[in-house]
Write a protein that binds this DNA or RNA. Structure first.
Lengths: 281, 281
DNA sequence: CGCGCCATTGATTGCTTTCAACGATTGTGG
DNA sequence: CCACAATCGTTGAAAGCAATCAATGGCGCG
């Protein structure tokens, strides 16, 4: 209950010595157009950087938090548990995501958060962050933008859960992951590392692991997905995109006020490590 | 394209002459603890109050907006259309809801909004609102709270779509509607008016209208729902709640920082017009 | 009064789940 | 470094929930 606000570890400035800024600050800079001053402020709020092992519950459902958790590296997920144990993963959290943005305004989390692989996490004090966003319009807008994008991703998943077939939905998930991971520089060769088990994928898509297995096999058979262990490659982006009915618009890659990233204009195209990738319609 | 910012109609102050403040301001006052000064500011931003007929598209998918739409009265919905015409309603918009909060931070709407009955709508200029939220921490927090609750509702619907049966999901929808409508004073006698057709309900739940018809009949047969035309009554709240596995926590009735409404404490209980109603766990 | 949208019902199909069992992989301790 | 245990992935058969197809009745609006 008692919040310990000791800054347990001070992290080196984010622009130091050619070190790559972390995924969170990078994303805010690219997408929300945050300047160095604001980035420094946010970075200064980092507390308690720590490494967390896989399958650790970062936040328990119904718990009261005084601080936000920023995922610097690794994957995690937000999920809800029904009374009888059924689980729905409502959001996959990737490097640069805030695990519990809602904690800024709301007292009890209505979801749980669990790491899916070894992660690096820092926390931000909610009061300090609110103060910062009162002082800097840039920070306020950046937080608003993060919330809006999260909202759009949830709505799009609604559409997937309600109106897309299992095959379309799985293809859609791969599309979304490729785009989101590209933004934070976590793709290689048109693919990425995905730590999820098939059961976890099932809890994202609202299906059973048995069915995920069969549908995934279908995508592989048709050459839309290649897998080696937990490394996935999407050899034919356009075919996959079509299969999924995927449009990148809801990710708002254009950023706040069209400030957006180094990803060029509609239809958001840029060169991947190995071949050009076109996101979108 | 050109934004006309003429204030076409000036609305009388929200606290005037015993008139009930509109649902939007009421909700912000109760849930976000907004003071009269902030409410006045927001009210002063109202522009273009107008009446809109049923089944009118307020916002088109992929459209660029300069202003937010506040639903003062009536029902509307936010939805997504897939390429082949499948539709998913991602949010039912009730009196007091903002139709497109995301427009504050994002340029192109990734959804459409349509009225479901005759509505009263006002608009707010996004720039003016952002300015207001920079000047008033209360307004900034209120907007943040609205966004957080919206996210929570979307996440809960995810869980419904992915992990609840049609019957549970429909029961859950009725529970949610009763709570949300109570907050804005739109319930009567343990029930409410719901303008949706069965096809629209189907687009909310990700089902077909045929199946909605059968499942709804099931709920009526079991005495969980009563219907006369578009008026619904929920005669046995506890039974319905249990059937749905409904918990009100995600609606965050406690409000910002626990400031929340006149609804009492956990487990959110208050007297309905005809009998005591207990929301939630 | 008639057209059109909405609600209702029955029969059939099909996607996804459930149940069960086996094979593969990963991690761990001796 | 190997062996075993536990988890994860794979496969088949059967059952179930919801979709689809098709047709009829009801109601409101012009």
């Amino acid at each position: 209950m008692a919040s310990h606000r000791a800054r347990s570890r001070t992290v080196s400035p984010h622009r130091t010595s050619g070190a790559i800024p972390d995924a969170f600050l990078t994303r805010l800079k690219q997408m929300a157009g945050l300047g160095d001053a604001d980035l420094d402020i946010l970075h200064g709020l980092y507390e308690d950087e720590r490494s967390v092992r896989a399958r650790v519950e970062l936040i328990a459902q119904g718990t009261r938090t005084q601080r936000l958790h920023v995922l610097i590296d690794g994957w995690a997920c937000r999920y809800r548990l029904l009374a009888d144990g059924r689980r729905q993963i409502t959001e996959l959290l990737l490097p640069g995501d805030i695990c519990d943005l809602d904690a800024l305004y709301v007292r009890n989390s209505d979801f749980a958060v669990m790491t899916l692989m070894p992660c690096t996490v820092v926390t931000l004090d909610r009061t300090a962050l609110r103060t910062a966003s009162q002082r800097s319009a840039g920070i306020a807008d950046a937080l608003g933008w993060l919330g809006a994008v999260e909202n759009a991703m949830l709505a799009e998943r609604n559409a997937c859960l309600g109106r897309r077939s299992a095959r379309e939905h799985l293809a859609h998930l791969f599309c979304e992951l490729l785009v989101r991971l590209t933004v934070v520089g976590r793709t290689r060769g048109g693919g990425f590392h995905m730590p999820l088990t098939q059961e976890e994928m099932a809890d994202v898509l609202g299906l059973t692991s048995v069915h995920i297995n069969r549908v995934l096999q279908g995508l592989k058979t048709d050459g839309l997905v290649e897998q080696r262990g937990h490394d996935f490659v999407l050899p034919d982006w356009n075919a996959l995109r079509q299969e999924a009915g995927f449009r990148a618009d809801y990710l708002h890659l254009e950023g706040i006020d069209g400030i957006g990233g180094d990803f060029g204009a509609t239809p958001w195209a840029f060169a991947g490590p190995s071949r050009p990738i076109v996101f979108g319609l």
